[in-house]
């Protein structure tokens, strides 16, 4: 799969771990290759789980999470 680097990654952070797990579920159902990861420490976040994704998918991800009423605490480019 191309491209390799440079392409940027993003993370989306949440207020609760329940929201992170739900987000992971709906994104996987939409066949997006995202990954649940521990929240990077430099992003002061409410919850210990975040979702890492390819920044190029940002718009789709925002749409899917909003569409499924999953509340987020912010999107960050890494």
């Amino acid at each position: 799969m191309s491209p390799s680097l440079p392409f940027s990654l993003g993370v989306v952070v949440f207020h609760t771990t329940s929201a992170a797990i739900k987000a992971d579920k709906v994104l996987r159902q939409a066949n997006l290759s995202t990954k649940l990861v521990p929240t990077p420490r430099h992003l002061s976040s409410d919850c210990g789980l975040a979702i890492r994704f390819s920044w190029t998918d940002l718009e789709r991800i925002v749409g899917i999470l909003q569409g499924n009423s999953v509340e987020t605490a912010g999107y960050h480019e890494l």
């Binding site: 609760t16 329940s18 992170a20 797990i21 649940l36 521990p38 929240t39 919850c47 210990g48």
Partner: peptide, 21 residues
Amino acid sequence: NPGRSGHRLSIAAGRVVLEAR
């Protein structure tokens, strides 16, 4: 432990709890 740690077993447990919810 569901939702406490970022590793795969914690996530697997968190998924089960979400499924129940």
